[in-house]
Amino acid sequence: MIAMQYSFTLPANYDMTIIDRRIRDKGPLLDNFPNLKFKAYLSARKADAVTSSTENLYAPFYVWEKGEGLSDFICGPGFETLTQSFGWPQVKTWIVWNAEVSKHIRAARFATREIIDIEPYAPLAEIRKRESDAVSADVARNEALASVAAFEPGSWTEVRFRLWADLPKSARQLGAQTYSVGHLSLPDTN
């Protein structure tokens, strides 16, 4: 699996209802997209009391079952249209250690994302196990509706991504980037 995110920082006075409308109109187009575990359409508003963002952001987060799904999307017309509207983003990718999704994922209203530097020569197997176990525990305890732990060996970073029904107070204490979820694209479960 591969996790992926790109982010557009928008001007402080940007009309974020444009992003809300884009999510509403374009979000369902990726429902049932081949090899997509989920896509969370995320936004954050500057000075929003709930997400406490310092910037206006549009920052979708994806988890791909297979690399072909990511490649098909990036090379497809939807991504081309996005880049024509917002520019050519830097796309971050991470190799997924573990990704768990609750059967209640559709109730997600908020997301958190932490990017953590991995110290040189850190015990990667231990980090992988610890982070993978935390992912499983988050969902098993019904604390998160989805939980992802992944790493990127080019920059030696790990990502912790969670979807929530209610934003936990600890998100701000951890220094996590917080988002509102506008839509979730998921595979058909029927």
Rank of each mutant, 00 (worst) to 15 (best):
M1T: 01
M4G: 05
Y6H: 06
N13C: 08
Y14L: 02
I18T: 13
R21N: 12
I23A: 03
R24W: 11
F33W: 08
P34F: 02
L36T: 00
F38Q: 02
Y41P: 07
A44C: 10
R45V: 07
D48S: 13
A49C: 07
V50E: 10
Y58T: 00
A59Y: 03
P60A: 03
F61Q: 00
K66A: 11
G69F: 07
L70N: 00
L70G: 00
D72L: 10
F73G: 01
C75S: 15
G76R: 02
P77V: 09
G78F: 09
G78S: 06
T81W: 12
T81A: 14
T83I: 10
S85T: 10
F86G: 00
F86Y: 14
G87H: 09
Q90W: 10
Q90Y: 12
K92L: 13
T93R: 11
V96G: 01
A99R: 02
S102L: 12
I105G: 03
D117H: 12
D117K: 03
I118R: 01
E119H: 09
P120W: 07
P120G: 05
A122K: 05
P123K: 15
P123S: 15
P123L: 13
L124E: 13
A125H: 14
A125Y: 11
A125W: 10
I127R: 04
E131M: 14
S132F: 10
A137S: 13
V139F: 04
V139D: 04
A140H: 15
L145A: 08
A146P: 04
V148P: 02
A150C: 07
F151I: 07
F151H: 00
R162M: 01
S170Q: 12
R172F: 13
A176T: 10
Q177R: 07
Y179N: 00
S185N: 05
S185F: 06
N190L: 09
